[in-house]
Every structure is written in C-alpha cells, then in structure tokens.
Amino acid sequence: MEQLIQQIINGISLGSIYALIALGYTMVYGIIKLINFAHCDIYMIGAYIGYVCMSKLGLGFLPSLLASMLFCTVLGITIERIAYRPLRNATRIAALITAIGVSLFLEYTTMFFASANVRTYPSMTGFMAKTYKIGDIVISTQQILIAVITVILMVLLQVIVKKTKIGKAMRAVSMDKDAAELMGINVDTTISFTFALGSALAGAAGILVGIYYNSINPLMGVLPGLKAFVAAVFGGIGIIPGAMLGGYVIGIIEVFVSGYGYSMYRDAVVFAILILILIVRPAGLLGKNTGEKV
C-alpha cells in the first residue's frame, strides 16, 4: 500500500511535467491544427535558461522559473512568426516538415552554444533539499514544488482561457477562424498568444525537470516531448483538460511500469498506449469521436 502511494506521488511529479508540455501541443494543435514538433525543444531550452540562471547567475528558483518562462514565451512567439505564419495557407504536411526543421535547428543551435555534453543543475540546498517522511513514504520539496507550481499554472491557464477576452478569442479561433474574424478578432495575434502560453508552460516544465532530475542535455526534449504528445492524444488533442489528465495518467503509468521492475519497457508501454488509443478511441478520452483527428 505504501509503495503504491509512493509510486503515485512519483508519478504525479513526472506527470506534471508531461501535462505542462502536453498543454502546449494541444493548444497549438487546437488553433492551427499543427503538431508543433519544435515544442519539445522549447521545453529543453527552458531547462537551459533555468540552468544559466541558477548555476551561472546564481539566481534563486522562483526568479529563474520566471526568466525561463519569459524567454520561452518570446521564443515561441518568434518561431510562430518566422517559421509557421508564412505557411498559414500551405498544406499541413509542409507545416509539419517545417516544424521538424525548427526542432532540429533548436537542438543543434543549443549544441553549438552549450555543447552536447550533459549539464548538471546546482545541487539543492537547505529548504529545497528537504525530504519529508510519512511512515515509509518519502516526499521531497522538489516534488511538492512541481505539483504545486503545475496546479497553479493550470488554474491560471483555465482562468485565462475561460475568463479573459484574449482567452475567449483563442477558443473562438480554434472553433471557427472565419467566424472569429467576423467578430473582429485578430486571428494572428490570437495565434501568437497561444504559442506564448504553450511555450511559457514548456519553459516552466524545463526548469522543473532541471531541479528534479538535475541533468540536462540538448536532446532531452525528444522523448518527454513524444510522451507529452501521447498524453495530449490520450486526453483528446485540442482539449485542454484532456492534456492535463493525459499528462498525469502517462506519468503515473510510466512510474508504475518502472517501479514494478519493468523499467526497460516503460517507453514501449507509453507508445503501446498511443497505438491502443488510436485504435479504440481515436478522439481521446475527453474527445468526441468526429472522425478526422491527428
């Protein structure tokens, strides 16, 4: 029983990271029907910004988190503006190939500047290094931070999307671009804003992973990116609560598979889940089955 709870706690930590990344995939897909392959590299760059802030500049965790989110926001907007906007009316495959190109560009540019070597986050000290024991269950400050920050960001996201004008514009554009334009909504601005939100969340995920696992490298985004994408599909691509749910489910499943001694198969299991969903429920857990998806 205690092992089960321990696994769930660990799963929530990992799942939070996947959920934060998955939100970006799902929002961008929702609004321009693009699987933004470069999204996982924004998460990677977020981890690097966090590293620079904490290791080189000696900033605390919270200012580093904000810096990382801000940098990724600007990066996301820039990528959309330069790489994707000119292809707004091109075929979907052209946009997809461009996204793969942007992804490789970000990975190898990072390698150029930061080398391909693994970097390690500074080891946590004081409050950040604390662990708490309840019986045999161990929970660390980092795990609490990850869970709490993720929940705060998700609540903020929900408030933005449901209550603010630009959030409503986002929903309107993702439902019907022409109709949104007829309301006087600026579609380009709204799409930029969507990239900004998704990228900020990815940046947060990057630094959270940095403090949790300590080591980062330029290709660190690839596998978590794929899994977060699976999470988004699992929950129903384009559906925000779906990405949150999918992230946690995938994270918890992965931890369970590893925790019960099948660590070698944990990636395989995640992709088996993807294949299973695509066969059984292609629209995802929270999606309506309407035929065309992904």
Binding site: K168, R171, M175, D176, A179, M183, G184, I185
Partner: peptide, 16 residues
C-alpha cells in the same frame, strides 16, 4: 461557436 454557451457567443459579437 459550438462549444461556447449562447451568452458567450453573444459576447463574442461585442468583442471590439
């Protein structure tokens, strides 16, 4: 906008 409520749809009409 199918997933928005009737009220939200009307509010979108007054977007500007």
């Amino acid at each position: 906008f199918p997933a928005m409520t009737v009220l939200e749809n009307l509010e979108m009409g007054a977007y500007l």
